[in-house]
Amino acid sequence: MSAAGFLSQLLQLAIALTLAPILVGWVNQCRAWLSNRSAPPLLQPYRMIRKLFHKDAVVAEHASWLFRMTPYIVFAAMALAAAIVPSLATDLPFARAADAIALVGLFALARVFGALAAMDIGTAFGSMGARREMFVGFLAEPALLMVLFTASLISGSTSLPTIVDTLAHREFAIYPSLAFAGVAFTMVSLAENARIPIDNPATHLELTMIHEAMLLEYSARHLALIEWASALKLFNYSCIGLALFLPFGIAEGSADWLAILGATPVLIVKLAVGGFALALIETLSAKLRIFRAPEFLGTAFLLAVLAMLVNLMLGS
């Protein structure tokens, strides 16, 4: 644990906080291009967040303190996750505090608080959103954990920096189990970030909403924080994916400033490609009925389990 480590930690957090809304803007742009619409500006999410912060908030009459606190808690959980996931460097002092399992726990914490806040209002839509969110989560969360387990079986560690170090250092070693894990991870990320086969982030019809239904009652700064936290979540998932499946270019070990500065453009390029891929998947697929969601996620879960099995089979 060094001073440079702390600095790189803070730098990474700052980059995550600033880049996350841009990533969402980029995905929206790509989606617009792919469906032949004229694209919103790249910084549109920023403008929205800024506008929301300046507005007066309206809170439902029946809301309790839980409802008001939730945006802050969700935001804090996502920020902590952004500090843990190695995106620029693997020398992260905070990452000792929470390994891969704890990371999934943090996501679960944010999810549970979101669902509780949605139920706090006492409307039909709020509780419907909460129920659906938990319904999606109960399969997505284990699947994500299984993906991370596969990676930790390869590296013999659940600590994210160690995993990424091991994966980035492999000498042309191909891990077939990662193929399964990659497919499973993609499916989970789509579901967890309220993306198309499971949920539509652009929907305006309450009955088809999952994530949005939970946020119906939020406005102004609360909504801004939640939107920012969602963007951070997408950023975190992208970074987990990049760290596990394309770890090249990350600053390894106790790296110096030069390496971290070099890693930044690589990260941006990788995120841009990843964001485009996400938009492509979203454009090419259709939203599933809610009761097809367990099939989709169950498949992801079983693929992740299969990844662990294949790892054991080929490793022995």
Binding site: H54, D56, V59, E61, H62, A63, G122, G126, L216, A220
Partner: peptide
């Protein structure tokens, strides 16, 4: 910004 309370959507 102020916080007001209102009926839910």
């Amino acid at each position: 910004g102020r916080v007001r309370s209102g009926p839910p959507w």
